[in-house]
Design a protein around this nucleic acid. Structure first.
Lengths: 132, 132
DNA sequence: CGGTTATTCAACCGACAGGTTGAGGAGGAG
DNA sequence: CTCCTCCTCAACCTGTCGGTTGAATAACCG
């Protein structure tokens, strides 16, 4: 409850944390089929409704779902936008890792230059030694 | 080596949990540039080396990184494969959510609801079985 | 109105994650 | 051989997480 400055970094933490729980991922899977109320979402699990309500709160804080109002019910809706945030983050490092893998021999060849931090990022990592 | 993949579900939990921590995501970012030793990875943070060693263990258990051997050092290497697992999971539900969004009017027509959006999305109230 | 349904709030609790210190093992460097 | 470096293991502390029960709020139903 200490959320005043919503940084994108914090949001990623919230999203990944939210999806780290199997039950919450399952809830997301159900919501992909269609909106559902808290009671409906809680039905398949052997936990109390309050527990599921908390889980939904976590998903909501992460921006993965939203809640509207229908009489006493609070239909939960899956939000697509946040997935893009994750995909972007993942793709960045996946591509980097794959690129380094496929270009391994070329990189090793280029590494002989003792010039850190300019055109060859891998060299900077390699030459790092006397850092505080 | 535990090659017995219990379930892709469990692996997803490990991966999401691993990336839920900002420090571990930062470590992944550094490893995208190039392999690094534990000491190098621990340098920027004000925590002990042991703590970072634990973090790397978490990343390793999730399959995000691997460790080789170079004298006393254990260079940490970013593994690209696991990112595909996440991307697949995310894309699945992102597409579902977006599809439901773009088909909203058709759905509303089917539901016989003259009220768009937040009024009464309660038609999803039908008995839903175990999806997916 | 009183009663029921749907959901959340509050306080509490066991388990676990992430940090620390302290010790120990593997492998150069002198 | 001895020392020093790099790293991991073990025990311990602490805050957060996921769950519970109990009560409160909101809106419908008769």
């Amino acid at each position: 409850m200490t959320q005043e400055g919503p940084m994108p970094q914090d949001r990623l933490t919230l999203v990944f944390s939210a999806l780290a729980d199997p039950t919450r991922r399952d809830i997301v899977a159900r919501l992909a089929v269609g909106d559902a109320t808290v009671n409906q979402l809680a039905a398949p699990y052997d936990v109390t409704v309050q527990a599921v309500s908390k889980q939904i709160k976590v998903l909501e804080d992460a921006g993965l779902v939203s809640r509207s109002r229908d009489a006493q019910r609070r239909p939960v809706h899956l939000e697509a936008g946040v997935f893009d945030l994750m995909t972007k983050w993942i793709e960045r490092y996946r591509q980097a890792a794959e690129e380094r893998f496929t270009r391994l021999d070329a990189v090793l060849d280029q590494l002989d230059r003792p010039q850190p931090g300019s055109a060859e990022p891998a060299a900077a990592q390699r030459e790092q030694g006397a850092a505080s």
